[in-house]
Computed example of a mutant assay.
Amino acid sequence: MTKADSIPSPASGGGGGTPARNRVRTIALIVAAAVVVALVVIGLVLAGARGAATNGGGQGDAANLVPGASGSPAPPSPSASSSNGKDEGGSDGTATPKVDPRYGAEVAQTVKQDVDAKLSGGLTAKVVSVEADDAKAVRAGETAGDAVKVTISLTNGTGRDVSLSQLSVNAYYGGKATPAVSLTDGAKPLVGALANGATASGVYLYTVPKAQQDSTVITMTDAAGSPVTVFK
């Protein structure tokens, strides 16, 4: 055998098979690396999708927690009536009467003494006259002397008979609205019931110093606890 015959050919099953195995190994490593890269890429994509979903959910929760945020209802704004607390006027828009400390009662209206005015209970009243008088002391607590005699008239246009048991007539005088003491000497207060459509007159006497009789103010109401009408 010659020297050339002793060298194995690459195609033979001898040591010439090593390069082929190396190529197979290389291809396997490349494929494995490609699989790993693909798995990494897929993992990153899935992680990004989960993160986006988590962020979206968080924003939704924040929107529900923050008033005025998108997707959440705005808190109701207070109405004009509630912002004012208690209603300052009546349901018809008129001002609610307030207690006048001078008279110790709410004042429905203030009118001149010779003007017809409807009282809170529905009767129509007028101060016919306020005259100087010299009264006598008849009962305990009364003081004889300077007084005013007040004549009033009441007209019932309510459509029904009205009891006068709740009629209240009072007098005040001076800049501080000093209450005048009522007198019985010569007084003829209205009592009983006033028939529908009827008019009746009454006389009331009060102790008022002569120098302040021109400042006399009369208040009237025909329903207990109701606002008074002031006649000046």
Score class of each variant (00 low, 15 high):
G43D: 08
N55K: 13
I42M: 05
T54A: 14
A32P: 02
A38D: 02
A52D: 13
A33R: 03
I42H: 05
A28S: 01
Q59W: 11
G60Y: 08
G60V: 13
A32V: 07
I42C: 05
V31N: 03
T54S: 08
V36E: 00
G57I: 11
D61N: 12
A34Y: 02
A32H: 02
A28E: 04
L44T: 09
L44P: 02
V41A: 03
G56K: 11
V45K: 09
T26M: 03
L29I: 10
G58C: 12
A53P: 07
G58E: 14
T54R: 10
V41N: 01
A63Q: 09
V31K: 00
L29Y: 05
R50F: 13
T26L: 04
R50H: 14
G58D: 14
V37M: 01
V41D: 01
I42L: 09
D61L: 14
D61T: 10
L39M: 09
L29H: 06
A52K: 13
V41E: 02
G57Q: 15
V31T: 04
V36L: 03
A28N: 05
V31G: 02
V41Q: 05
R50V: 15
L44A: 11
T54V: 13
L46W: 09
V45L: 12
I27Q: 05
V41W: 00
Q59E: 15
I27C: 00
V45A: 12
T54W: 09
I27S: 07
G48T: 08
G43H: 07
A34W: 00
V31A: 05
A38F: 03
V37A: 07
A49M: 15
L39Q: 07
A38P: 00
G51P: 01
D61P: 03
V37S: 02
R50W: 15
A32Y: 01
N55R: 15
V40K: 04
G48M: 05
V40I: 07
A34I: 06
A47S: 13
A63R: 11
N64D: 10
A63M: 06
